[in-house]
Amino acid sequence: MFNNDLTNLTMLVKNIESFIQQHSENAKLVYKVQLVVDEIVTNIIKYGYKKEEENTIIVNIRSFQNLFTITIKDNAKYFNPMEHTLPDLNKHKELKKTGGLGIFMTRQYVDKLDHDYQNGNILKIKIYK
């Protein structure tokens, strides 16, 4: 659990590395889980909350035999990454713009992503080992 401050996010990304390494020998999973958590939480902090307000985001990562589950809870405005319009990659290539890519990158790496809204967003993510 941490406040909606991007400085806290860096420590979380760093801590994910040791957690994943403890539960999987697949080094590729470290980057996958780091990227998914980083991009989603960044999105919540930047666009879900007002900058001057202090809010909380809860990130829970659990390891099971064949998968990692990630639950991310906030009390920000409604945002379902699965309903997010994906960027036109050809346009991005031509214009050399990168905005909006974070959610696209996330969707490439998750095996399952469910969204629910109950006074905040609840994202339940599965990444297979």
Binding site: V13, E17, D38, K96
Partner: peptide, 13 residues
């Protein structure tokens, strides 16, 4: 070890 979409954007610029 890690680069986010922001970092890839910087690299492109």
């Amino acid at each position: 070890k890690y680069i986010s979409s922001t970092g890839i954007g910087v690299l492109l610029k």
